[in-house]
Amino acid sequence: MAERKLRILVGKPGLDGHDRGAKVVARAFRDAGLEVIYTGLHQTPEQIVSAAIQEDVDCIGLSILSGAHNTLLPRVCDLLKEKKADDIAVFCGGVIPEDDIPGLKKAGLKEVFTPGTSTEDIVAWVKTNIGC
């Protein structure tokens, strides 16, 4: 029987222009054997959700350093719900204050990775928590 190949969307919502982190993580997923749809900088939540649906990904990994995480990330989760696609898991990484994490998780984020997390840990988390 054929096997499912894990597909993941990596993108950057909003207006900050720092994509080194997203690229490093995308590369780590590639090296772990995943198919990574990299959508790049300056994405609106609408664009991210639409791409995730068209690409039939298992999860969405968002990198955000702008401070707009409390606005943009819940919006991604809401749109997924609206489109009946909330089986697609969302996690994020970036400069996110400790205090904001519970709120983000309540909004639907499955995990929040803060600075200092190793790519091995992120890959391991995806492999353990994201089934397809």
Binding site: R30, G33, E35, V36, I37, Y38, G40
Partner: peptide, 14 residues
């Protein structure tokens, strides 16, 4: 080597 891929064509079509 790994079977992984970076699919980046969408970036130009966002």
């Amino acid at each position: 080597f790994t079977g992984g891929a970076i699919l980046g064509d969408r970036i130009r079509m966002n």
